[in-house]
Every structure is written in C-alpha cells, then in structure tokens.
Design a protein around this nucleic acid. Structure first.
Ligand code: ATP
Length: 669
DNA sequence: TCGGCGGAGTTTTTT
DNA sequence: ACTCCGCCGA
C-alpha cells in the first residue's frame, strides 16, 4: 500500500509505466503529458517498495533537469532514500566512470576536463603550427567538425577534409599528452573503457539495476552505446521521449535511437500518453498546428483538461529596444495587477545574445531575474585565470592552463622563453611543465629567465602539494596564492576603470566563496569541484544561493526544454533567427520548427510571441522579416497586433510617450 | 618583457 | 557596437 501511496497523482497509463519496473519500458508522448513526472514518481515508487536507491540510475540531458528531478524525488520520499539515487547527466556519469578506470586507457587519474574555451585554445595553437596562413581555419569551426566526427564515431582517417583530419589527429595526440579530455572524450572513453575491460563493465553493471533516461530523443549513438553497456541482463530500463521535441540533431542526437531501443531491448512495454496537464487548449492547438507541418512525423493525439484559455498574442515591434520595453512593461503590469509572481514568467529566445537587452531593462526596473545558461560566470576572464591555476595544480601536465597563467600576472618569463619551452616540449613529447624542469632546456636560456623559471616552479610545487592534500581549506589556500603572486594588483593594472577592477575582484571573491561551499558541502575535494565546474553543474546552484532564487527566467528555447511557466514570451521571432539562417542553410528547418514547438509548449496559461521590423546587427540597424513559421500558425488561436495599435490604447500612454521620445531622438541624429 | 592600440570578426543551439 | 587578438613602441 505504501507503493500505491507513492504512485498517487498518476493517470492509468502513467501508472502502468511507473509500476512496470522489470524489463524495458518505452514512454513516447507529446509535450506536457507528464513523462518526467512519471519517471520521478516511478523512482519514488521503487524506493517505497524497498529497492535501494543506490541501484537506481536516472540520466537526464541537462544539469538543470537533473537537479529538478532530484528535488522532485526528494519531495516525495524520505530525504535519505532520495540521496542514494544517482540522478545525473550522461557526461557526469562518464566522469564518475572514468575517474575509476581511465588509467586503463592510457591517461592518468588526475586528468583535466577541457571546456570549450580550453579546447579552442589548444586548437588555435595547433592550427597556427599546422596550417599555412592562406588556408584559414577557425578554431571554432575545427572544434565543431571534430566534435561531430567524434560523436559519429569517426577517427581522423575517416574524414574527407585532410586539413581537419590532420588537426584532429594532432589535437587528440596532444590532449593525451596533456592528460586532458574534452566533452566528447568523456563519452568516447567511458564507452571504450567499459568495452575493453570486462571486469570494469561487470563492476558497473552490478552497481545499477534500474535505469531511466529522460528526453531520450536527444541521445546520440555514443550515449546509446553507453546505456547498452551499463544495462545488465535484466534489462530494467525505462526511456521517455518525444520525437517532436528532438532539437539536438546538430550534436549527433538521432531519433532512430527510439527505434533502435526496441531492437536492443526487445519487447518493451510501450506507453502512450495523450492528456496534456500543462497548457490550455488554445496553446496546445497552436503548437499542434505548427508541428503538423513537419514531414514524416507520426501524428499524436494531445488534449488538455485545462480549459480553452486565452488567445496567444502575436505582436510586431518596430525594433528590439521597443520589444524589450513592451515585454518588461507587460511583466510589471501583470505583476502589479494580477499579483503574478516573477517566478511564473519566462522570456524565451533563440540565441543567448538576445537576452542582453532584456537583462538591462529588467535591471533598470529592479525586477528580479535569472539568466539560465548563457555566458557563464566561469567564462569570466578573472575566474578563468583562477580556474587555470587550480587546474594546473591538480594536473601539472595541463599545458593550456600553464600557458594561460605563466604570464598572468607577468613574472619575467616572456614570449621567448615560453616559445622555446613549447618547442622543446614538442620535440621531446613531454609537457611544458617537464620542459621547464629540464636541465638541457634551462641551459639554453639567459640567467635571468632561468631564475624566473625556478621561482615559478618552486611556487607551483609548493601549491601543488597543498592542493593535493585533504582537509586543506582550498579557498584560503587560493587566496594566499593570489596574494603571493600579486594577482589583485595585476587586475587593478589591466582594468580601465576602478569600477571594473572592483567587479572583477568581487567575482574572484564570489568564486572562492562558491568553491568553499561546494567543497565543504560535498566533501568531494578540489578535484570534485573542478569537475563540477567543467561540467557546468554548479550554475543553477549559484542562482539558488542568491536567496529564494526568484525572478523572471531568461532562457533559450533549447535550455527551456522540460521546463514550464504560466506566462511565456517568445521574443525576436524573425526569419533568420527562428528559423536561424544557419539552420536553413544546413537544411534543418524541421528541427527549427520543433524548437519553436518546444518554446510554445512551455507556456501553461498565457503566451506572447513578438518580432521586430528591424534589429541591430554588427552595429547597424537591419530590416527584418517575420518568421516564416507564422504562416503555419492557426489564425484562430492568435491575436495579431502591432506595437502601434497597442501604444494607441490609453492604458499604455506612458509607453507610447517613451516610444515617440525615442523616435524623435533617432530622427534628430 | 609589458601594456596600449588598432583591426578584424562577431550571432546558433549544450555538455 | 563590442570584444578579442596580434603587433609594436617603451
Ligand atoms: N497525472 C497528472 N495529474 C496532474 N498533473 C500532472 C499529471 N501528470 C503530469 N502533470 C503535470 O503536468 C506538467 C507537465 O509534466 P511533465 O513536465 O512531467 O511533462 P513532460 O511530458 O515531461 O513534458 P515535456 O515533454 O514538455 O518535458 C507538470 O506540471 C506535471 O506536474
């Protein structure tokens, strides 16, 4: 009966899926039909029937989804029970696997996880060395090409482009030498580790008995391989997904995994869910009408018991500035008149850069908000500097970090010495750290440089020791280290204004605070903290720390998948933005349509879609066209207006005055 | 060796 | 418009 209690709040098909804990289960259902709720309740139900949490693994696609699932499970069962369940992303699961067995694959245990910017730093170095000036290759382009090759399981020799193949080969060799792995390697190496080492595979298969994967439509082949390796002969594996919400094709995600699921895990119980518990029928019909334009898709029934609701507004704006003003005004009004919590409101967009204007306006109006995803705190220059120091202390062979900090602040080791050390490390196939120790290398330098290097190495050794000692206060250690090298003064020097220097100092402080908290809460050591940062696991937590974590959410439609908000704005919906021109070029219009579908289906009660007649691009004002997807939206579910009409309404006098004032200003320029 | 200036490129989406 | 990278003068 306690099992039943756990499964309360599910409808019959959901319940059937939750109760079927033996053998494969495939839940295929549209947006908002309670797939995730079924999974979380399923976990809770299992815990109620005395299955140890430690045997349960639930994999999600983003850290945010993992955190949310963990919270939801924790609210349903005893705290202790919930803690034992492993709920994480594929990537963090791989890190856990690799920390136990990467030595079998020729890496050292203290390997560093390279973020996108570390990766591009390394690629830049390789490109400069390998590629002549006339064939120009952007590090970013190279990283995309290499990443997609890796996700397709292709080796350098499988690539058509000889240039990329050569860069790829060198890149991979260097990563190994630096004892570093990139994001894709996490998956590749974990799969390889399990495949090549039956004992390790057995060990991990014994570790978990029950598996769940949310947003299964977004898994790629590597992730599928990993799942197959982990799932034991019992095949207790439940995956949930929606082919209409597949939006990560560009990362190698392939919905044919859904078909393959039946192949690898034969005879699954297939569950279909048709009742949407999230949105009003008007919103649902709008979304269904749009997605129906995708070719080769299986039609789904989807209905809602939440009433008809309001029409979706589709509003034309003169420019992005006015758009932001309008949205923020609407939010203020809703908050004041309807007493709507800011937490219930989200602004969705296609690209992270689109959030900036909205952030500014929200700050202006002193409205609390949170930017989810986007330019991370950890991408800040000063934070990256400190991170590079810490990464280097944990892995002295990490040349990318070493090269970053050896001149930050300048310490008498200049371009010349660094260039020679790099060359030496290439010739000798060793790390730069090792090169700096080499007597023969040192002999080729001036006395001055030799002294600077030996001071630097002494410094590194000293802090490497404390960083690798347990029960050290790492934040205090880092602070002492920064003090010793005069980092704060250095920052002051390179900043243009005292304000900027102050902000950067505060960022470093906040970073150290966060580090201290993470390390003392989880007892994972400095290594664990650095892994979490690389996997971007801490981002959300930071938000929460900022008391109650309340506010309007600013989020891309990609990152919003799986979330829901009573009131949503989808902004900047212009041709070239959604669908994005690059996607149209690549022929993935259908995926863009799915993305729009995901955006629309985030809204529970009220949806507003806006677009601009003109938008600033590369500095100057460019005319824009409305998204071609608008033609596919059912007119009956829409209330089409433009800003002018709204501004003429008396309620918005203030806003109109604002607008005309700005027009005047623009004309007078 | 260091810091300031000028030019180029910038806008997908995430782990 | 804004940021990052590379080049050059002190
Ligand atoms: N049986 C139910 N009774 C009441 N509410 C439900 C039920 N099932 C789901 N819900 C609610 O419906 C909303 C959507 O659920 P959930 O997020 O699990 O859907 P989903 O299928 O995972 O959606 P998406 O595919 O968009 O991520 C949630 O607020 C959830 O609490």
């Amino acid at each position: 009966m306690s099992v039943k209690k756990g499964l309360l709040g599910l409808n019959p098909p959901q319940r059937e899926a939750a109760e079927t804990i033996s053998g494969p289960v495939l839940i295929l259902a549209g947006a908002g039909t309670g797939k995730t709720r079924t999974v979380t309740t399923r976990i809770a139900g299992m815990l109620y029937s005395d299955i140890p949490g430690s045997q349960i693994l639930a994999v999600t696609f983003t850290n945010k989804a993992a955190a949310e699932m963990r919270d939801r499970v924790a609210s349903m069962v005893d705290q202790k029970m919930a803690e034992d369940v492993t709920i994480c992303t594929f990537h963090s699961l791989c890190v856990r696997i690799l920390r136990t067995c990467i030595e079998r694959l020729g890496y050292k245990k203290n390997f560093t996880i390279y973020t996108a910017s570390d990766q591009q730093g390394l690629l830049r170095k390789i490109i400069v060395r390998k590629v002549s000036k006339d064939e120009k290759l952007e590090p970013k382009v190279a990283s995309m090409a290499i990443s997609s090759a890796k996700n397709r399981g292709e080796r350098p020799e499988d690539l058509d482009d000889a240039l990329i193949a050569e860069v790829y080969r060198t890149y991979q060799r260097e990563l190994r030498q630096l004892n570093a792995v990139d994001f894709d390697d996490l998956l590749i190496l974990a799969v390889q580790g399990l495949k090549e080492n039956p004992d390790i595979k057995k060990q991990w298969q014994r570790r978990f008995r029950y598996f769940m994967v949310d947003e299964f439509q977004d898994t790629n082949h590597l992730q599928m391989s990993l799942l197959r390796l982990l799932v034991g002969p019992e095949k207790n594996v439940c995956v949930v997904g929606d082919d209409d919400q597949s939006i990560y094709g560009w990362r190698g995600a392939d919905i044919s995994n859904i078909l393959d699921f039946e192949r690898f895990f034969p005879g699954p119980k297939i569950v279909k869910l048709e009742e949407n518990y999230r949105s009003t029928n008007r919103i649902l019909r709008l979304a269904n009408g749009l997605i129906r334009h995708n070719r080769g898709r299986r039609e789904k029934t989807l209905w809602s018991g939440r009433g008809e609701g309001e029409l979706t507004r589709l509003i034309a704006m003169p420019d992005a500035e006015t758009e932001a003003d309008f949205v923020i005004n609407d939010i203020v009004e809703e908050h004041r008149l309807q007493n709507r919590s800011y937490d219930d409101i989200a602004i969705l967009f296609r690209m992270n850069t689109q959030s900036r204007l909205f952030e500014e306006k929200l700050r202006e109006h002193e409205i609390p908000y949170k930017v989810i995803g986007g330019q991370s705190f950890y991408e800040r220059r000063e934070v990256k500097d400190v991170l590079a120091y810490l990464n280097l202390l944990m892995n002295n062979d990490d040349d990318v970090s070493l090269l970053r900090i050896i001149t930050t602040p300048p310490r008498g080791i200049g371009e010349n010495a660094i260039g020679m050390a790099t060359q030496f490390s290439i010739d000798r196939q060793c790390s730069i750290f090792d090169a700096l120790h080499d007597i023969e290398f040192l002999a080729s330098l001036s006395m001055r440089a030799q002294n600077a290097i030996s001071r630097f190495l002494e410094f590194l050794d000293r802090y490497t020791d404390s960083a690798n000692t347990d029960s050290v206060n790492y934040a205090a250690m880092t602070e002492a280290m920064l003090e010793e090298i005069g980092y704060t003064d250095y920052v002051k020097r390179i900043c243009k204004s005292p304000d900027e220097a102050d902000m950067r100092r505060r960022n470093v402080h906040e970073f150290l605070e966060g580090m201290h908290q993470h390390v003392s809460n989880r007892k994972t050591g400095l290594r664990g903290f650095l892994d979490a940062v690389a996997l971007m696991q801490d981002k959300e937590e930071k938000e929460d720390d900022k008391e109650n974590g309340t506010g309007v959410s600013l989020i891309t439609m990609h990152a919003a998948k799986g979330l829901e908000f009573p009131k949503c704005f989808i902004v900047g919906v212009e041709e070239g933005v959604l669908p994005h021109s690059r996607s149209v070029e690549e022929g993935s219009r259908d995926e863009e349509r799915r993305l729009f579908y995901v955006g629309i289906t985030r809204a529970m009660e009220k949806l507003t879609i806006t677009w601009c007649h003109s938008r600033r691009r590369y500095g100057d004002l460019m005319p824009c066209m409305p998204s071609s997807f608008f033609k596919e939206l059912d007119e009956d579910e829409l209330e089409k207006t433009d800003y002018q009409t709204l501004a003429d309404e008396p309620a918005d006098e203030e806003l109109a005055a604002d607008y005309f004032a700005r027009m005047k200003e623009m004309l007078s320029k």
